[in-house]
Computed example of a mutant assay.
Amino acid sequence: MPTAQQTQTAAKRSALKFFQITSYITGFALLSVMITWGLRRLIGLELWAFGPNGLVTLEPVVYIDDVATGLPTTGLNLTVAILIVHGWLYVAYLFADFRIWTLFRWNFLRFLIIAAGGVVPFLSFVTERRYSKLALVELDSTEVKN
């Protein structure tokens, strides 16, 4: 029968693995958001799927009073879909952040820095690497004591 310490260590390792996975997925989703944002605001194109012009196309968009005009009426706006998917992935990332923060009993500043990783491009990759190393050192030191 596993001891309480072994159960706690297993929970920490599980939370750390979940954090690592969500960090990368959320980071790539955020980069996709930044690319589609650049296409939309800087070039005036939106990514569109299953529209009248093909399977996946870049459709010109014109903004009049912050209202998009000129887009197809059929199909799926992938630019908006990527934004929505990133939003839900960020929720999972925040949950992973909360899990490691509570299990490892880190200070609140670490929680905030990790949380910023889901909205600042490339930061999720940096926080994953830095805080995963810190967590592994803590886990290894705990296992050495036992």
Rank of each mutant, 00 (worst) to 15 (best):
Met1Ser: 14
Pro2Ala: 13
Pro2Met: 15
Ala4Leu: 12
Gln6Lys: 13
Gln6Met: 13
Gln8Gly: 00
Thr9His: 13
Ala10Asp: 12
Ala11Phe: 11
Ala11Val: 14
Ala11Pro: 07
Ser14Pro: 00
Ser14Tyr: 10
Ser14Arg: 14
Leu16Arg: 02
Leu16Glu: 05
Lys17Met: 13
Lys17Pro: 04
Phe18Met: 06
Phe19Met: 04
Thr22Phe: 08
Thr26Cys: 10
Phe28Gln: 09
Val33Gln: 08
Thr36Lys: 08
Trp37Lys: 15
Trp37Glu: 12
Gly38Cys: 06
Leu39Asn: 04
Arg40Thr: 12
Glu46Asn: 14
Glu46Ile: 03
Leu47Glu: 00
Ala49Asn: 02
Phe50Arg: 03
Gly51Ile: 03
Pro52Trp: 06
Val56His: 05
Thr57Gly: 07
Thr57Val: 14
Leu58Gln: 07
Glu59Pro: 01
Pro60Lys: 11
Pro60Tyr: 06
Pro60Met: 06
Val61Glu: 04
Tyr63Asn: 07
Tyr63Gln: 08
Val67His: 13
Thr69Ser: 14
Gly70His: 09
Pro72Glu: 10
Leu76Asp: 08
Leu76Val: 15
Asn77Thr: 05
Thr79Arg: 04
Thr79Gln: 06
Val80Leu: 10
Val80Met: 10
Ile84Gln: 05
Val85Gln: 04
His86Gly: 02
Gly87Ile: 01
Gly87Val: 00
Leu89His: 00
Tyr90Phe: 10
Ala92Asp: 01
Tyr93Gln: 01
Leu94Val: 04
Ala96Ser: 11
Ala96Met: 00
Ile100His: 01
Ile100Met: 02
Thr102Asp: 09
Thr102Pro: 02
Leu103Val: 08
Leu103Gln: 06
Trp106Ala: 05
Asn107Leu: 07
Phe108Val: 13
Phe108Pro: 01
Arg110Ser: 11
Phe111Lys: 09
Leu112Trp: 13
Leu112Glu: 04
Ile114Tyr: 03
Ala115Pro: 00
Ala116Phe: 09
Gly117Phe: 01
Gly117Lys: 00
Val119Ile: 13
Val120Ser: 02
Pro121Val: 10
Pro121Glu: 07
Ser124Ala: 12
Phe125Trp: 04
Val126Arg: 05
Thr127Ala: 03
Arg129Lys: 12
Arg129Leu: 10
Arg130Lys: 13
Tyr131Arg: 02
Ser132Arg: 15
Lys133Cys: 01
Leu136Met: 11
Leu136Cys: 04
Leu136Thr: 09
Val137Ile: 15
Glu138Ile: 09
Asp140Trp: 05
Asp140Thr: 08
Asp140Cys: 02
Ser141Tyr: 09
Glu143Phe: 05
Asn146Ser: 11
